[in-house]
Each structure stands twice: as C-alpha cells, then as structure tokens.
Amino acid sequence: MTYKLISNGKTLKGETTTEAVDAATAEKVFKQYANDNGVDGEWTYDDATKTFTVTE
C-alpha cells in the first residue's frame, strides 16, 4: 500500500510517499525520514487516507 507523509516542519515542508506492508512499517520509514531531515514534532495518522502528518 502507498502511505503519505505531510511534513509541516520549521525547515522542511512538503509531502512524500512510501510503499509499505502496513502503517507501522510506513511510520518507521517516515520517522527515520523526518529524523534525517531534522524534523521533530507531533505526529498524527489518518487511516482513511493512509496519511501521516508531522507538525513542528
């Protein structure tokens, strides 16, 4: 399945996607992506749209 990340960081804003077997796997990928880009904030997940959002 395709999962989307919306980043509302102070230094990184935008969207990216990943293919993953489940939401937990996608979350690990996205949290590593955010960490690699210096984004640390509040996370939410919408199962209906398969979208994670991180806001700093």
Rank of each mutant, 00 (worst) to 15 (best):
M1Y: 15
M1D: 13
M1F: 15
M1Q: 14
T2K: 10
T2F: 08
T2V: 13
T2E: 07
Y3F: 13
Y3N: 02
Y3D: 02
Y3S: 02
Y3E: 03
Y3A: 02
Y3W: 06
K4G: 03
K4L: 08
L5N: 01
L5A: 02
L5K: 01
L5W: 04
I6V: 11
S7E: 04
S7L: 15
N8A: 10
N8T: 11
N8Y: 14
N8S: 09
G9H: 11
G9I: 14
G9R: 05
G9Q: 05
G9C: 15
G9A: 13
G9F: 13
K10Y: 10
K10Q: 10
K10R: 13
K10G: 11
K10A: 11
K10I: 13
K10W: 10
T11L: 11
T11I: 12
T11K: 11
T11F: 13
T11R: 10
T11N: 12
T11P: 05
L12W: 15
L12Y: 12
L12H: 11
L12S: 08
L12I: 11
K13S: 11
K13Q: 12
K13P: 11
K13H: 10
K13C: 15
K13W: 11
K13Y: 11
G14Y: 14
G14A: 12
G14L: 15
G14T: 14
G14S: 12
G14F: 15
G14P: 10
E15R: 07
E15K: 07
T16D: 03
T16C: 15
T16P: 04
T16V: 14
T16A: 09
T16Y: 15
T17K: 07
T17F: 14
T17Y: 14
T17R: 08
T17V: 09
T18C: 15
T18P: 00
T18S: 04
T18I: 15
E19I: 15
E19N: 13
E19H: 13
E19D: 10
A20K: 02
A20S: 06
V21Q: 11
V21S: 11
V21H: 12
V21K: 13
V21C: 13
V21F: 12
V21G: 08
V21R: 12
D22T: 05
D22N: 09
A23N: 05
A23F: 12
A23R: 13
A23W: 13
A23S: 09
A23D: 04
A24Q: 11
A24D: 09
A24Y: 10
A24M: 10
A24S: 09
A24N: 08
T25F: 07
T25V: 06
T25S: 13
T25A: 13
T25L: 06
T25N: 07
T25I: 07
T25P: 01
A26C: 01
A26N: 01
A26I: 02
A26D: 00
E27A: 11
E27C: 15
E27F: 15
E27S: 06
E27T: 03
E27Y: 15
E27Q: 10
K28M: 12
K28C: 10
V29G: 03
V29A: 08
V29F: 15
V29L: 12
V29R: 09
F30E: 00
F30W: 01
F30I: 01
K31W: 06
K31D: 00
K31N: 03
K31V: 05
K31C: 05
Q32W: 05
Q32G: 06
Q32L: 09
Q32I: 09
Q32S: 08
Q32M: 10
Q32K: 14
Y33W: 15
Y33N: 02
Y33A: 03
Y33R: 04
Y33P: 00
Y33C: 04
Y33E: 02
A34M: 11
A34W: 07
A34C: 14
A34E: 01
A34L: 11
N35I: 15
N35R: 15
N35M: 15
D36N: 09
D36K: 10
D36L: 12
D36S: 10
D36V: 10
N37S: 07
N37I: 11
N37H: 14
N37P: 01
N37V: 09
G38M: 06
G38E: 06
G38A: 06
G38Y: 06
V39S: 03
V39K: 02
V39A: 05
V39E: 03
V39N: 03
D40G: 08
D40S: 13
D40F: 15
D40C: 13
G41N: 02
G41D: 01
G41T: 02
G41M: 03
E42T: 13
E42C: 12
E42Q: 11
E42H: 12
E42V: 14
W43Y: 02
W43T: 01
W43V: 01
W43K: 01
W43C: 01
W43S: 00
T44F: 10
T44G: 06
T44R: 08
T44P: 00
T44W: 07
T44N: 08
Y45S: 01
Y45G: 00
Y45E: 01
Y45Q: 00
Y45W: 03
D46E: 06
D46N: 09
D47W: 08
D47I: 08
D47G: 08
D47Q: 09
D47P: 14
A48Q: 11
A48F: 10
A48K: 12
T49C: 04
T49H: 05
T49D: 04
T49G: 04
T49L: 07
K50Y: 08
K50V: 03
K50E: 02
K50Q: 09
T51P: 00
T51V: 06
T51K: 03
T51E: 03
T51N: 01
F52T: 00
F52D: 00
F52L: 00
T53H: 07
T53E: 05
V54L: 13
V54M: 06
V54R: 01
V54A: 02
V54G: 00
T55K: 07
T55Q: 07
T55V: 09
T55D: 06
T55I: 10
T55P: 01
T55S: 09
T55G: 05
T55W: 12
E56P: 10
E56G: 06
E56D: 09
E56K: 06
